[in-house]
Write a protein that binds this DNA or RNA. Structure first.
Length: 271
DNA sequence: AGTGCGGCCTGTCCGC
DNA sequence: TGCGGACAGGCCGCAC
């Protein structure tokens, strides 16, 4: 499940192979993603030079002079660099064939991801225009979070997972950051103090930053192997540990559901 | 406007 | 061993 560190690791991994390279053609074997892959994609991209590879939240942006390819990996998507002619795996839905003989291959078993074609400023696209700040940027500050918590009755975990508040905080890292900050996931957002917000912002940044560092060590996998970034290698303190002892106080971790998401916390350490 | 929930999907795991 | 069903989850879009 690609979280923000994995998307950024993917961006860095594919960038050297795409930047200033020409796209010979695009092959769409399965257009039925979250939204249909637009017919225009293949014809518009043919012969285009990739001028930049950016990221906004969990969206990757492949920029060309004519427009931008917006790629979201959803739950199970991945991008990998294949050699043209390399055997297809099941769920290899789209190929971006480069003049270099490489091929950027989109793979997505559950098809929750998306590939869209956007002309004009992609930041004005409805999917991007309303997104909150990047979690690792200066704009995501304790003051900002406190302001966004004001008047909100949702659980704090739901709030930090809302991409309109801050992008890139998925379920795993929301659980981990709340544990590290000592905040109960069901605490009403409006009831967070400045101190809570300071701890929470710090821990969100730290957990993402750590994962990014770990992911960065496996870049070569994007070219050769199965493209599995190493962010899971970091030890998760609560996620997936429901019923097991809290690593700080040995109290059994509690597992509940919050907004249809598996939620794990220590009933003693998190208040 | 804010809130909560349904739905999209398939691989994996569990119990029978 | 085979089968059905529950579960996992990002995030849009809808209903209230």
């Amino acid at each position: 499940m690609p979280e923000l560190p994995e998307v950024e690791t993917t961006r860095r991994g594919i960038k050297p192979f795409l930047l200033n390279r020409k796209i010979l053609k695009v092959v769409v074997r399965e257009p039925r993603l979250r939204w249909p892959v637009p017919d225009a994609l293949a014809e518009e991209l043919r012969g285009q030079l990739v001028t930049a590879i950016d990221r906004r939240g969990k969206y990757l942006l492949l920029r060309t002079r004519k427009g931008t390819v917006l790629i979201h990996l959803g739950m199970s998507g991945s991008l990998r660099l294949a050699v043209v002619g390399e055997a297809l795996k099941k769920h290899d839905h789209v190929d971006f064939i480069l003049a270099s003989g490489r091929c950027l291959r989109y793979h997505d078993p559950r098809r929750f991801g998306s590939i869209l074609w956007v002309t004009g400023d992609p930041n004005l696209h409805p999917l991007l225009a309303e997104l909150g700040p990047e979690p690792l940027g200066v704009e995501f500050s304790p003051d900002y979070l406190l302001a966004r918590c004001r008047g909100r009755s949702v659980p704090i975990k739901s709030l930090i997972m809302d991409s309109h508040v801050v992008v890139g905080v998925g379920n795993i890292y929301a659980n981990e950051a709340l544990f590290a900050a000592g905040i109960h996931p069901e605490r009403v957002a409006d009831r967070l103090t400045a101190e809570h917000c300071e701890a929470l912002v710090r821990e969100i940044k730290q957990v993402l930053d750590r994962a990014l560092t770990v992911g960065g060590t496996t870049l070569r996998d994007f070219v050769h192997g199965d493209g599995k970034p190493g962010y899971f290698a970091q030890s998760l303190k609560v996620y997936g540990r429901g019923g097991q002892p809290c690593l700080q106080c040995m109290t059994p971790l509690r597992e509940t559901r919050l907004g249809q998401r598996s939620t794990v916390f220590c009933p003693r350490c998190q208040t």
